[in-house]
Design a protein around this nucleic acid. Structure first.
Ligand SMILES: [Zn+2]
Ligand SMILES: [Zn+2]
Ligand SMILES: [Zn+2]
Ligand SMILES: [Zn+2]
Lengths: 163, 163
DNA sequence: GAGGTAATGTTATCTTATAGCAAATATGCC
DNA sequence: GGCATATTTGCTATAAGATAACATTACCTC
């Protein structure tokens, strides 16, 4: 019923919800969420930490599916275009987007110790960044914000590196 | 005398100033700005756009200097540690820091069309990001902000892609 | 100059990402 | 269904970015 109050991990239900919403969005937009693309999105969501392209490829191969790097990169390109995932440039990893219905670059809190990533998407930050850019006569297309630090859990115990 | 009001490019004097300041900072800190490290910093500053590691390596080789990737990556690591340059993760390039005396992650306006990069470093943005992170009980170590868009020049004419 | 530390040279390798073309699959029309 | 079309996927090769490991050289102190 009620979602667990502290969700460190992407639970199966999170994954399910994300997939369902992706399905809906793709239908609305008239684009095809193929088996491969859906599976890549599922792999990303069902892991606790954002994944690199080659880690995703490994899972696909464990599935028994054929594939080479272009296979996964093309799926990632599609998911990125549709705003269903983000790329964290500082880590070369890909993470599911929590609000795929509204386009945004993404603001992320990345834990140095356990690797967890939290998508912030503070409108205040977005607006201020836009204002500062505008003050410099700069036309904004996309914003990328990545904050590296320590998550609440890793501050508490030193249960670092939970894998 | 007066610095040019619109500085699209890093002028030789900018480069000279940056090198002089780097020299001073490294002396104060008791670290060695060797020939190689100084030259890499100079190469970065004397180019109009941020450069990739292998582009820097090419220039080093044009100098007649020996070198392989580790040569330039070690120099870059040193310059990054000392806060003399930044890495723009979204582009895999390195850019000189305008305020190397104060440590910061860096906030960048990156022009999609001409590739120019402008370091913003708005304290307001930094503070707000810090506050938003703190509200989520997240301990900030470093912030990285990269805003992709179009610089004033590229909005005016469509003198895009000035190379 | 001997000894220790820091920096650089050198080779090989690893990770991340893309180009290019062929085969397969979905879609739309007759 | 049969066929033309465009999209998607398979597959090989390769580009681009970054690091590991170890040998050599420069620098500093005694
Ligand atoms: Zn998002
Ligand atoms: Zn953590
Ligand atoms: Zn800076
Ligand atoms: Zn521009």
């Amino acid at each position: 019923m009620t979602p667990s109050p502290i969700s460190i991990d992407s639970s199966p239900s999170d994954t399910g919800q994300a997939l369902a919403q992706a399905e809906t969005l793709c239908q609305e937009r008239g684009v095809r969420l193929t088996d491969l693309r859906r599976r890549v999105l599922e792999i990303i969501w069902s892991h606790s930490k954002p994944m690199g392209a080659y880690a995703i490829l490994d899972v696909l191969r464990d599935d028994g599916r054929q594939g080479a790097p272009p296979t996964v990169y093309r799926a990632l390109d599609f998911l990125l275009e549709q705003g269903l995932i983000h790329r964290l440039a500082s880590l070369n990893v890909y993470a599911g987007c929590c609000q795929p219905d509204s386009r945004h670059g993404g603001q992320f809190l990345i834990c140095r110790d356990c690797g967890q990533v939290n998508e912030m998407n503070s409108p205040a930050v977005e607006n201020l960044l836009g204002a500062e850019a505008a003050a410099r006569r700069f036309e904004v297309l996309t914003q990328m914000v990545e904050v590296l630090g320590r998550c609440p859990d890793c501050q508490r115990g030193t249960l670092s590196d939970v894998g």
